[in-house]
Simulated scan of single mutants.
Amino acid sequence: MRILFIGDVVGQLGLKLVQRYLPELKRQLKPQVTIVNGENIADGKGITEKLYKALLQAGTDVVTLGNHAFRKRDILDFIDDAAKLVRPANFPAGVPGTGYTIVNVNQTKLAVINLQGRIFLDAIDDPFTVADQLLTEILKVTPLVFVDFHGEVTSEKLALAYYLDGRVSAVIGTHTHVQTNDARILPEGTAFLSDVGMTGSYEGILGVKKEPVIHNFLTRLPARFEPIEEGTGQLGACYIDIDEKTGQAKKIKTIRIDRDFPLFEV
Rank of each mutant, 00 (worst) to 15 (best):
Gln107Asn: 09
Ala123Tyr: 15
Val33Ala: 07
Glu203Asp: 10
Pro262Ser: 11
Asn106Ala: 15
Thr142Phe: 14
Asn106Ser: 14
Leu110Val: 13
Glu226Val: 04
Val18Cys: 06
Tyr100Arg: 05
Gln234Val: 14
Leu115Met: 14
Ser155Asp: 14
Thr60Ile: 07
Val62Asp: 00
Glu137Leu: 07
Thr48Asn: 07
Lys251Val: 10
Tyr202Ile: 05
Leu139Pro: 01
Ile242Gln: 02
Asn181Lys: 09
Gly151Arg: 01
Ala183Thr: 05
Ile185Lys: 02
Lys250His: 04
Leu13Asp: 01
Asn106Gly: 11
Val130Met: 08
Gly200Ala: 10
Ile3Trp: 01
Pro23His: 13
Asp243His: 13
Gln12Thr: 15
Leu13Arg: 02
His215Glu: 15
Ile79Lys: 00
Arg27Phe: 12
Val130Trp: 01
Phe91Pro: 00
Asp126Leu: 11
Gly236Arg: 03
Thr129Ala: 13
Ile172Ser: 01
Arg167His: 09
Glu49Pro: 08
Asp81Thr: 15
Ile113Tyr: 01
Val112Ile: 13
Phe128Thr: 03
Asp8Gly: 04
Pro127Trp: 11
Arg220Asn: 11
Arg118Ser: 11
Gly66Phe: 04
Thr60Ala: 15
Arg20Gly: 05
Val147Cys: 06
Val103Leu: 10
Gly200Thr: 05
Glu188Gln: 10
Glu49Lys: 09
Leu218Gln: 13
Asp77Tyr: 15
Val105Cys: 09
Asp77Pro: 11
Asn67Val: 10
Glu24Trp: 09
Asn37Ser: 08
Gly59Asp: 02
Gly117Ala: 05
Leu235Trp: 02
Ala170Thr: 04
Val9Asp: 00
Pro187Ala: 12
Val36Cys: 06
Asp241Arg: 08
Ile124Gln: 09
Gly94Pro: 02
Tyr162Val: 08
Gln19Pro: 07
Leu139Gly: 04
Cys238Ala: 14
Glu244Phe: 15
Val141Thr: 15
Asn67Cys: 07
Tyr100Glu: 10
Glu156Asn: 14
Val168Leu: 08
Thr190Gln: 03
Gly99Met: 03
Leu51Lys: 04
Gln179Val: 03
Ile138Met: 04
Phe70Thr: 08
Arg220Val: 13
Thr129Trp: 04
Arg2Val: 12
Ile119Ala: 08
Thr232Trp: 08
Gln19Gly: 09
Gly97Tyr: 02
Thr64Glu: 00
Ala83Asp: 10
Glu156Phe: 06
Asp182Val: 01
Arg27His: 13
Ala111Thr: 08
Gln179Cys: 11
Tyr202His: 15
Gln28Asp: 07
Asp126Asn: 12
Gly99Phe: 01
Gly11Asp: 05
Arg71Met: 06
Glu156Pro: 07
Val168Phe: 03
Arg73Leu: 11
Ala191Cys: 15
Gln19Trp: 04
Pro127Lys: 05
Arg256Tyr: 02
Pro262Lys: 10
Asp182Tyr: 03
Gln234Ala: 15
Gly97Trp: 00
Arg167Ser: 08
Asp81Val: 11
Thr64Pro: 01
Val147Gln: 00
Pro23Lys: 13
Glu203Arg: 03
Gly11Phe: 03
Glu39Thr: 12
